[in-house]
């Protein structure tokens, strides 16, 4: 248990009549940068809210840093940082005031970090929060979540309204934090290129279940697109385990598979006397293939 920052076991969650999560299990190891992928409406936000105890779950068990999210201990809260997708915060306060306000809740607050981030992101600490743009407000929320140097950082679509420069800055900050100290980062996104850069583990949420969960590199090794050219007619006889998608004419086929191993290629080559080209897929392509 101590090895996981978040552990979800057989969690089910319904919103109204719709099942959003069904019997879902997920474990996020400590120290990892964990990316959660999924189509719009797949339930990423709900999963995160369940993990934080912001909503009640219908079945299953969750622990966050070894604590029950439905009833978090104050000490656990000191170690948590969360940035929601969008947030409404007191518009009449200035950036400086909202920082002081948030800081006052925590026993530890890194002023230096907060100031350098404000600098990096060109946020004026005297600006009123209500006048910030969507992106700036998101930056501010990120800064507020980093100030107390939490052990577990959870972001819901953190970069959705950030421009490319700010997005890069955000990733850099996250990487700096992970390499400086023990910290687990869990975030949902649909911008796969960001995930590829920073995440070491990913989970794919599809049809209220986790479709894949593990190391990003393993995912990339396992999901491949094969281009098969065979001397015989192969339009009927393709029996490959882990087939996701197949497109074929008489002698040629383009198939995507999961659970790919080099031996598999040799086996098919022998079986069909075919020539096979293995194509590496990047995360975006994998995402598209798996969501077919």
């Amino acid at each position: 248990m101590a090895d996981f920052a978040i552990e979800m076991k057989n969690v089910s969650k319904e919103l109204g009549r719709k099942k959003v999560l069904r019997d879902l299990s997920l474990a996020i190891p400590k120290g990892s940068v964990f990316g959660l992928l999924g189509k719009n409406g797949a339930g990423k936000t709900t999963l995160i809210k369940c993990a934080l105890g912001l909503v009640r779950i219908q079945a299953g068990g969750i622990t966050v840093l070894g604590d029950d999210p439905g009833n978090l201990h104050e000490d656990t809260k000191q170690k948590l940082g969360y940035v929601p997708q969008s947030d409404r915060i007191y518009p009449w306060l200035s950036v400086k005031q909202i920082i002081n306000y948030t800081a006052s809740f925590y026993s530890h607050w890194n002023d230096q970090l907060v100031h350098s981030l404000l600098n990096d992101w060109d946020l004026d600490s005297n600006d009123k929060v209500g006048l910030l743009s969507e992106g700036q407000a998101q930056m501010l929320m990120i800064i507020l979540a980093l100030g107390h140097e939490p052990q577990l950082l959870i972001f819901d679509e953190p970069v959705a309204s950030l421009d490319p420069a700010a997005r890069r800055q955000f990733l850099k900050t996250i990487l700096k934090i992970v390499s400086d100290r023990e910290c687990t980062v869990f975030f949902s996104t649909h911008i796969t290129s960001d995930l590829e850069r920073v995440a070491d583990r990913v989970a794919l949420l599809k049809d209220d279940k986790i479709d894949f969960c593990g190391e990003l590199d393993v995912l990339k090794d396992e999901v491949k697109r094969l281009r098969i050219v065979a001397p015989v007619d192969i339009s009927e006889e393709l029996n490959i385990s882990g087939l996701i998608f197949c497109e074929r004419s008489h002698h040629e086929a383009i198939i995507s598979v999961r659970g790919f191993k080099p031996e598999m290629k040799i086996a098919i080559e022998k079986q069909l006397k075919a020539e096979i080209e293995v194509e590496d897929l990047n995360l975006e392509e994998i995402f598209l293939e798996l969501n077919r």
């Binding site: 934080l52 978090l72 000490d75 948590l80 929601p84 809740f105 925590y106």
Partner: peptide, 15 residues
Amino acid sequence: KRQLANYRASLLPHY
């Protein structure tokens, strides 16, 4: 309502 109907109410210590 504004103070308590948001995520901070659940995640900030002693909130």
